[in-house]
Design a protein around this nucleic acid. Sequence first.
DNA 1: ATTGAGTAGTAAAACGTTTTACTTATTTAT
DNA 2: ATAAATAAGTAAAACGTTTTACTACTCAAT
Lengths: 333, 333
Amino acid sequence: MKTLSIKDIAVEAGVSITTVSFIINGKARNKSISEAVIKKVEKIIAESGYKPNQIARSLRTGNSNIIGLIIEDISNSFFSRIARLIEDKAYKKGYKIIYSSTENNVEKAKELINMFKSRKVDGYIISPIKGLEEDIQQLLTDQKPVILFDRSLPGLDTNYVGADHFKATYESIASFIKQGRRRISLITTDIDVAQITARLEGYQKALEDHDIAYDENLVLKVHFNQEEDETRLQMEKLFRTVETDAILFATNYLAISGLKVLKQTGQKIGKNLSVMAYDDHEVFELHTPGISAIQQPLEEIAEAIIQLILRQLSSKTKLDNQQIIFPAKIVQR
Amino acid sequence: MKTLSIKDIAVEAGVSITTVSFIINGKARNKSISEAVIKKVEKIIAESGYKPNQIARSLRTGNSNIIGLIIEDISNSFFSRIARLIEDKAYKKGYKIIYSSTENNVEKAKELINMFKSRKVDGYIISPIKGLEEDIQQLLTDQKPVILFDRSLPGLDTNYVGADHFKATYESIASFIKQGRRRISLITTDIDVAQITARLEGYQKALEDHDIAYDENLVLKVHFNQEEDETRLQMEKLFRTVETDAILFATNYLAISGLKVLKQTGQKIGKNLSVMAYDDHEVFELHTPGISAIQQPLEEIAEAIIQLILRQLSSKTKLDNQQIIFPAKIVQR
DNA sequence: ATTGAGTAGTAAAACGTTTTACTTATTTAT
DNA sequence: ATAAATAAGTAAAACGTTTTACTACTCAAT
């Protein structure tokens, strides 16, 4: 069974291809096609189940109704939840999402951008990594809508949606100090993106403001792409050799690894040790005792991203870039 | 800056479009293009950074190098992990993935299939739901490669990759019984797909084989799309009104909800109550006490799916359908 | 000298749309 | 009665590829 084309519909209705196209695209009224013809063609389309070939359409119009989503790792719950929300909202507006994970690999990320380009995606939603500056700048130069989220890249003037990582970290450290903690450890990663450095800065500033000296032995920067076993070894060593009474984990997967280490070494969270995680996770809610966490407002972030990109997509002219920063919320458990 | 087309390359090299096309597609040697010309054109392509327009290519060839992935919910860790693995493997073979979540909504799923059709995806990987039989049959009739996974639909002769849900459930119940449990509860969902009914059957058969009467008060079928609060209420009522000494949760998100209820009502897991979850999750590993779980071999499943679909894609003729069933593993914690 | 077989390459159709510029008939305004 | 405007619709170009069928030439064999 050959799939139907617009020509088949035109022949069946005894009108030209042009007429059918106008009707499909809702331009019939402007183009003065009679009601009678419109009705007839619409009926035939409905009965035949004809669906326009999106590929041909894209080739002609130059847009695809596809938005490219580039994230670090879809199996990370922060990203999969955001992805789900974005997909949902985009879908309602007639856009589809193609996503891909970069695994923080610059080469892969570049290839992805190229692939999306050659697929003519209409816009890009990117959780960027260092090394992508030029490629993203190129997209901007080509007038493509680009929204960065979660992290931004210094020196790049783009739309950005994220949470106030600095403030959230600052406050979480301040809350530790209020509980009487003084030897506060930060476990973070070595990826050099704004969102991660902001977390370090928030940590440092909070200590400084409370007259606690910064001790670099308390800070562990885990290499991003290493095996979890290696990470756990490093943490275990830290916990064993350095005295701490509170730990802030800068990402949820680090916190999960850390909790595994604490469980294994038998160190109890509570009277002598407080723990907080950046980005909430079901693990933290169910853990005994509950683990406090910094919650980013996922729903709001996804909504802002999609609003921003749709606004761009439907505007003929280049709009001013916007930076939207949401406060993050500390959930004490 | 206009994007380059094959024509620009042809002009620059002083050859025809045809010649460039042959070179791009590695057909130059067959088609007797001289080494000198090949080298020259390749050089120009490399220097200009020209990338063929995939849309035009798809329109002409009828395939897109895109595989459509339809799952229940990308924010469910089982699916997001599978998706990540599939994406990874597909990427290495030059295929991209477009995914979408059905949320167990038949209408949405049908629309998705249509959208994928009109985008001319080369193949479909689907975690199906009841009500999709006809649409999937249509894909098969159209000779499109289709792989179902996680669940299958009765009456549909397709490729299928999944785990042996019946056996895994049977064994988990048997292990409860061996521990001396007799009042074993099953908490499952009401979606009517093979993988869920198999879990119920495994439960029933295990009881029967151990001479324990089936008691329907011990079985809770939660409505799929309901709010988590409602689910928790139902569970709480069950735990309050029915005496149980073991619970098998048929999905990991149900188990997570269940653990929250147990935590809130203060019921302890251990001497008087055993718990097991279908599909592992980090929550279960870190929970105190650890929660036993049935692990599906995600890596193998993803690998089998991708093997199967690539095999189809590269074969001219329709291959025999295969059903690949992996054993699931019980992790006692 | 003619035929046949290779070598090196190209012109043009086709994929299925959208859109511009056009035609023809009818109505309205003068 | 005629010019201008409107209504109803269409032909054909264009988007950027791939692929089929072709040309033009050279060389070897008869």
